[in-house]
Design a protein around this nucleic acid. Structure first.
Lengths: 87, 87
DNA sequence: TATATTTGTGTATTATAATAAACATAAGGA
DNA sequence: TCCTTATGTTTATTATAATACACAAATATA
């Protein structure tokens, strides 16, 4: 039995991904906020797993060149009726 | 040269995915809204590509049993420094 | 055609994400 | 040690997502 992933865990993981990507680009929270025309507080909260808007998330995803990947993943999910198929 | 995906397109695709999944479960917007304790208007706007909160998106993703997939995809992105690597 | 259901839209209100500014703390470099 | 930078947190304000109605327009269904 695999533990179900929670919404909170996904938000925390999203924040971690942002932090890791940001640091790999050698940017501070302030740098990222300015690049995306967001406040540092918004970046700060996002990286710590708080709720955010889709626009904020996608701005960040886009900045790290992951928007195309996300789009393709969504397209794939739409095609397959059941991604968890055993076959 | 591949056209860059826009934030607007991703939001529209997210809405389409929701609509397609919802219909595959034979649910109305009202049904989905009630199941997730959201207003129908919120579901309506999301399906039509409007901005939303991360909580709303993840509630919907979770309802269609895609939260684990999303979590794993985020974990994978964190590990690989460059998902677009040619190697 | 009627009737019911679903979807799209409008308005007003409430809840909350985003912003701006300030300040504390911690870590690192001079 | 001092000075700088980055992060975390607070308070107040603004912008906007979410809600709760209502109603019109499609879209089934009898």
């Amino acid at each position: 039995m695999i533990d179900a992933v929670t919404i909170k865990e996904v938000k925390l993981q999203l924040g971690e991904l942002c932090k890791q990507k940001r640091q790999s680009y050698d940017m501070s929270q302030q740098d990222l906020a300015e690049a995306l025309e967001l406040s540092r507080y918004t970046v700060q909260k996002f990286e710590n797993g708080k709720n955010a808007t889709l626009d904020t998330v996608l701005k960040i995803v886009n900045h790290f060149d992951l928007l195309g990947n996300l789009y393709q993943a969504l397209k794939d999910l739409e095609k397959s009726n059941d991604i968890n198929s055993l076959y």
